[in-house]
Simulated scan of single mutants.
Amino acid sequence: MASRSTLRRHDALYFDDGNIVMSATSANNPGSVVFRVHKSVMAKHSPVFADMFSLPDTGTAAETYDGAPLICMPDAAEDLQKLLEALYCQPPFSLVPLSPHNPSIARPVLALSTKYEITHLRQLIVDRLEADWPLTLEKWDALEDMTMSQRSHHYRFPGPFIDDLFPEPASAIRLAHDFDIPTILPAAFYHLLRIPVADDWNLLHKDSPKATAEALWTGRRTAKWDLLRAEDLLTVLRGRDALLRALNAKMFSISLEPEHPEDEERCDKFEGYSALIDIVKGYFEPTT
């Protein structure tokens, strides 16, 4: 427990009528932050907190702060703040549709809502992620076509970065593994397969030369490759190899002399893409 001199009350999440105080160590500043909240609010949302508060004389035998029982939390103060804001503040916690920043914004709230079994808050985040990463390729293609059409209609060059209009796949994949959300993996891997390893988010999103900015403005997409686990990188390599083999087989099977001349364009346009759909659906579909 930090000394009293190193405890700092949170400006917004310290309620005078609260009946429980939580302290948590700050990752960015020395000392600990204390939050004064309400047992009834916390217990309503979380069975873990409900069980904790049902113990006799919660915290009083150990220590009190400002006349209320004090609980030392194992979580980072910054993460606990995000969770309490999601439970207390208005408007309620929300994520911007298709934002590439959703995984980083959602991570602390998702982590603690999972840990403390706040199911409605976890489900809200999962629903948003599943909307960002459609469960079928057909829905992903429709979303991608709509977004690109809106960009071309409303913006002139240079316009916004393409990356700003679509979710970022590597951070989504890492989040899916860390918090058991397998449903978003197929679309996230599919999107990642089309991004060259050289197109790295951390490099191209820095203050960069004009040529790099133009590359992003005109359609190059990037990924946060450094967030991927080794097994995810291996999955990408295997997926790309499978795609190349499938596409080569499809292209080899196309007749050089179709019965109807108009079929030639159709073959070039759809046969390879059909193979891509089949292989991605089969390769990245989460197993049950």
Rank of each mutant, 00 (worst) to 15 (best):
P74E: 07
M146N: 15
D278Q: 11
N28I: 15
K139I: 11
S26T: 07
A27I: 09
A142L: 09
V34A: 04
F161N: 06
L203R: 14
P134N: 03
F49T: 00
K206T: 13
A68V: 09
L204T: 02
H10E: 07
D180M: 05
K115R: 15
H260F: 10
E168V: 01
L165M: 11
F189K: 02
L193P: 00
A27Q: 08
L137F: 03
M22W: 05
P97E: 05
L247Y: 12
R229G: 14
S26N: 07
A170T: 03
G59A: 05
T136S: 04
P56W: 11
P91H: 06
L185Q: 01
T287G: 11
L244M: 14
S171N: 07
A86W: 00
N28V: 15
I184R: 01
P167A: 06
L234E: 10
E85V: 10
Y88M: 04
A76G: 08
K281P: 07
A246S: 13
D127V: 05
G59W: 03
K39V: 09
L203E: 14
L227T: 09
G18N: 04
E265K: 15
L234T: 10
C267S: 14
L276V: 09
T212S: 14
T288R: 15
L193G: 02
I71E: 02
P261S: 07
L243N: 07
T6W: 06
F179N: 00
A2Q: 08
K206N: 15
S5H: 15
Q90F: 09
T25Y: 01
D75T: 07
L70E: 02
P158W: 05
P100C: 10
D226E: 14
Y65C: 04
S23A: 07
E78L: 08
I105S: 04
A275V: 13
R266W: 14
P209L: 05
R221E: 10
D241W: 12
H45Q: 12
A230L: 15
S253T: 13
I277V: 14
L165P: 04
I184H: 00
S255R: 03
F35D: 00
S54W: 08
R221F: 07
P69H: 02
P169T: 14
P160H: 08
D75E: 12
I279D: 01
I118A: 00
A2R: 04
D75I: 05
A131N: 09
L165A: 11
L70T: 01
I173H: 00
G219K: 04
L193H: 03
E144F: 14
L143Q: 12
K115C: 06
R229Y: 15
A12L: 10
F284A: 01
L165V: 09
M73V: 06
D141W: 03
E285M: 11
D141E: 15
S171C: 12
L135G: 03
N19P: 06
A187F: 01
L124Y: 03
D163H: 08
S54A: 15
A24M: 01
I279Y: 02
